[in-house]
């Protein structure tokens, strides 16, 4: 499996798409922090109020970037397409699966590569925010150690929650054999969950609103008694999705 991870890293590093994703991520972070604006698809009034200060510190920049991180998922769709989509659209899985790798190793390695890439890009996203703030001569707003610790933890949390949706997209891709539908799922899922949550008023749906969960946990807006519910639901969804994907690919006519 290590070889497969190395293979995917080599391939991605030789793909223009990953460079474009990196450029968009840096540009997006730079624009948010430099102009003191907040974007995102599920930004709430509560969270916004934290940033209603006149002049931002580097810490405020990180918070703003966290709030705006919901949009990152659309930038990261390319990672899904490049990591596993190409294998199916170009049928190169035929070479991969005859290389001695098991189906479960194939699925897990693809997930891990996506997680790793998302984590690294989010880390770069926050580091860009810090650099942009420094260029604008902003103060740190906390200790440097706290700031970096915050960046690392937030990156980890956001990357994990985004990766859950990407993991589900792998299952959709295997079910439909369509990269387009798999990618569309990533776009539609958060919107669908939020809309359903608002219309149906099903409180439990909030645990499946992975992007908002990432944001709330990072900004410490989640009540401490609900924190583990979010984590456990996400982990359970991820594990079930991975198992179903492995079962499906074992039964699938490839």
């Amino acid at each position: 499996m290590i070889n497969q991870l190395r293979t995917d890293l080599y391939r991605l590093s030789h793909t223009w798409g990953i460079l474009l994703t990196l450029v968009f991520t840096i540009a997006y972070s730079f624009i948010i922090t430099s102009n003191s604006i907040v974007g995102g698809i599920m930004v709430t009034g509560d969270s916004m109020s934290k940033l209603s200060v006149v002049s931002w510190t580097l810490k405020d920049g990180i918070n703003a970037s966290t709030l705006s991180s919901t949009l990152l998922v659309y930038i990261f769709i390319g990672i899904f397409v490049m990591t596993i989509g190409y294998e199916f659209s170009q049928k190169t899985y035929k070479n991969t699966l005859v290389s001695g790798i098991t189906r479960s190793q194939f699925i897990i390695s693809k997930y891990l590569i996506m997680l790793l890439n998302i984590f690294c890009l989010i880390l770069i996203y926050f580091l860009t925010s810090i650099v942009s703030g420094m260029i604008s001569s902003r103060t740190v707003g906390t200790s440097w150690q706290n700031l970096f610790s915050m960046v690392f933890n937030t990156s980890l949390v956001i990357a994990f929650f985004i990766s859950v949706v990407f993991g589900m997209a792998i299952l959709v891709l295997l079910l439909t054999s369509s990269v387009v539908i798999g990618s569309l799922f990533i776009v539609i899922f958060p919107i669908l969950i939020t809309t359903l949550h608002n219309i149906a008023n099903w409180d439990w749906l909030k645990y499946f609103d992975f992007f908002s969960a990432a944001m709330k946990i990072s900004l410490k807006l989640t009540p401490s008694n609900q924190l583990w519910n979010y984590v456990l639901v996400s982990l359970a969804v991820l594990i079930v999705t991975m198992i179903l994907s492995v079962v499906l690919i074992k039964q699938k006519e490839l």
Binding site: R11, W16, Y86, Q90, K91, K94, N95
Partner: peptide, 11 residues
């Protein structure tokens, strides 16, 4: 193995 058609990453 080369099954059906030869496959490689286009780019």
């Amino acid at each position: 193995a080369v099954i059906e058609t030869p496959v490689a990453f286009d780019r």
